[in-house]
Design a protein around this nucleic acid. Structure first.
Ligand SMILES: [Mn+2]
Ligand SMILES: [Mn+2]
Ligand SMILES: [Zn+2]
Ligand SMILES: [Zn+2]
Lengths: 158, 158
DNA sequence: TTGATATCAAGAATTATTCTAAATAAAGAT
DNA sequence: ATCTTTATTTAGAATAATTCTTGATATCAA
């Protein structure tokens, strides 16, 4: 289903028919997806709405929520949650974590180190199945943390 | 400040004075903390409210939110967020992740493997400072995943 | 006891998100 | 091209978690 929708996106707005009741690559869905691809700064639904409205004045916030939900369900987009803040959206499908700078509020993609896998550090319970993993970090980005040489260290736990 | 409040909790409700304007270990704060220690099932604020109300009928939901916020800020309790769901609260101060079973909805603490550290798998940006890390997983717990032998595997990414 | 300050409690307010229902658009068939 | 069916969009109402406001209480320290 993922590939189905994606080929329709890269190709030319044809029906996705069959499988999941017939998903259509509509102008709105394409626009929302393009907005995410254009500026990869993890916008919130409202930010996506504002950017989309600039290109299609008739689009509604409800539709933006619908499209983001559809694209997420289709696997083309990831919904990103950091704490209690509004969800943000990200078209980067590679496995990655998110880091939010508490000062400048920028959201950074954090990739996995080569040959590492996230599960390796956690003592996962035997017999369970993990479908979804979300890793969120907060702190000061390099720019906002200027001067301080103690980089990449977690505050120790009590 | 953490230890300050904690000793007051374990000891006998004395003022925490000084430092942060004088935090007091009130009956309500103690109760909320006790509720969390009593049943370590990561209750939501509303669940904490219900349990607290059973022991102190006068307590209000607003106060429960206040107490949870104060205890979290003091470092005695962790606020746990999984997706968009209501925050849950956890008195386990050891570094750990959370796993929610999408079927039975139980929340499990997932500890770090011995000698491992979370940051080791991520390519953290040089010069930044991470103050906070939250890891949330979703899937089927061992009981709800009965029969299936393919355990602990993440669904592959596209 | 008294005055200063911290905390509590009830309800209003806020905010992100979801729901509802009617209007519109797209796809396939004729 | 027209018709039919179904998916989608839209505006606004509704929801739910959380925060805010304000006056009442409790606690501390003098
Ligand atoms: Mn991302
Ligand atoms: Mn926990
Ligand atoms: Zn920054
Ligand atoms: Zn389960």
């Amino acid at each position: 289903m993922v590939s189905k929708l994606r080929q329709d996106i890269t190709a030319k707005s044809k029906s996705a028919g069959g499988a999941l009741g017939g998903l259509r690559m509509t102008r709105q869905r394409k626009l929302v997806y393009d907005v995410l691809l254009d500026e990869r700064d993890h916008p919130t639904a409202t930010e996506v709405f504002i950017r989309s409205k600039a290109r299609m004045s008739s689009i509604s916030l409800a539709t933006v929520y619908n499209c983001l939900e559809t694209l997420s369900a289709a696997g083309l987009v990831k919904q990103v949650n950091v704490g209690r803040d509004a969800s943000r959206y990200c078209p980067n499908l590679a496995e990655h974590a998110h880091f939010v700078c508490v000062k400048c509020e920028k959201v950074y993609d954090i990739g996995l180190k080569c040959n590492e896998e996230v599960e390796s550090v956690w003592a996962l319970p035997e017999g369970s199945r993990i479908d979804h993993l979300e890793v969120a970090m907060k702190g000061l980005c390099a720019e906002c943390n200027g001067g301080d040489k103690r980089s990449g260290k977690m505050e120790e736990q009590v």
